[in-house]
Design a protein around this nucleic acid. Structure first.
Lengths: 229, 229
DNA sequence: ATATAGTGTGTAATTTTTACACTAAGTAAT
DNA sequence: ATTACTTAGTGTAAAAATTACACACTATAT
């Protein structure tokens, strides 16, 4: 019902679960709060939606302000609106997730000022989180577990060129289980969205693996068809 | 970011896509607006979230006010927040869907007063909708298409006791394609969430089909495992 | 030369999916 | 009671997908 527009004291925010992969571990970006409530607690980065922004724009802006990153695949996945979730008033928050490759190369830009600091923390060992952020994170992880089975989002966590072993590693971390190497390769190659390059991995002290790239064109052609892990 | 709580003039609403099944067609509930903007247009039923309600509570209340129904499976699925989606100001809306069996038996209670009338309209022949409600509906249909493949939501559209043919019919309508009778039965029975009853269908002028019931207990045991169509 | 560590590959068994058509059972009309 | 009608209910064979499983190859480091 939208024909009546009372002015309500409600605040609408966006919180982001930024999943990062450094080649070894899955991490999420957390900030250490510098203000009450939950001063000194770790929390998900978030912010308030601006009056003239679309939700997606707002999420992108927030990501940018916090990390300096642009052009990242982000998706809203759930709205949290328990009336008591924020001790100081009604705040409805919309959760987004993003998947980010953590390169040793470019470091994240220092974040905006509302936090003492920000850190990428491994999801295997998270601290207690402020507000209902544990719930938001849990649901986000659940979401990407589901989504990685059907959509090509794993590539967002990897550099442009990657090996099949690295790709398998990402799947194993997100899904939380081991996969069979031969079967994994058979399947992922059969989807036909990978382009095998003429290049090899560098800087390893063993046989270098072939590099692959995610082929957006091929994927575009598939669209509509279901990928399934 | 939630430590600062400015008072913003933003309105937060919930809109519902209520899918109904009368044994023949899939329908959605629409109301005919009695006020500007979009006076005389058809729109999705919705309302503003109350200050002390959780989102799910709010959705349930709205459903109840509009239909008299309680205890219906409802799920939020997307937030729409384009700054221009409402001509009179910023309204962020959270979309829920619900699945409802339309019985000839109990009729829906008359709805609250903000609309001229409410009607169940077949999804195959929808009028132009107010605001961005077409987009909201489209996304809702997409959502239940996906969900019906993995979750036992089809049963919500059927009476407690139903035949396999009726169940298949629901799947066909939602998925928008014909299914093979034998394969459908084989698969749906193999999930082990149906209880075959000793009863037969009544009032048909041909061989009566066996009735089945959705077995919540068996389903609870399955939980975690993936159902897949 | 040798040790080391990860790459890359094939096959057989099993399970799942698909395509497909007729008989059985009940009702209605004569 | 016969007949016509309508939907219920069932099986199988072929194809495709999934699973389980092990070893030789290659590059590097010493």
């Amino acid at each position: 019902m939208e024909q009546i527009l009372p002015h309500l004291d409600s605040v609408f925010s966006i919180d982001c679960v930024l999943f990062g992969f450094d080649g070894k571990e899955l991490k999420i970006l957390l900030i250490e709060r510098n203000e009450e409530p939950f001063k000194d607690w770790w929390a998900l980065p978030g912010n308030i939606v601006g009056a003239d922004e679309s939700l997606d724009q707002s999420a992108s802006r927030i990501l940018y302000e916090l990390t300096g990153l642009r052009g990242i695949y982000m998706e809203q996945y759930y709205a949290f609106g328990d009336p008591n979730r924020h001790p100081q008033g009604r705040v409805i928050t919309l959760a987004y997730y993003a998947l980010i490759r953590l390169g040793g190369d470019k470091e994240l830009r220092p974040i905006s000022t509302y936090a003492k600091r920000a850190n990428w923390l491994p999801i295997t060992d998270l601290p207690k989180l402020a507000f209902d952020h544990q719930k938001i994170y849990d649901k986000g992880l659940e979401k990407i577990k589901r989504r990685i089975k059907h959509q090509p989002i794993a590539f967002e966590l990897l550099p442009e060129k990657f090996t099949l072993t690295q790709l398998q590693h990402v799947y194993e971390l997100v899904l939380g289980k081991k996969l069979d190497k031969r079967n994994f390769r058979k399947k992922i190659v059969s989807f036909g969205v990978l382009k095998e390059l003429d290049e090899k991995q560098k800087g390893v002290s063993y046989r270098a693996a072939t590099l692959y790239r995610f082929d957006k064109r091929k994927y575009a052609k598939l669209f509509g068809k279901e990928i399934s892990f």
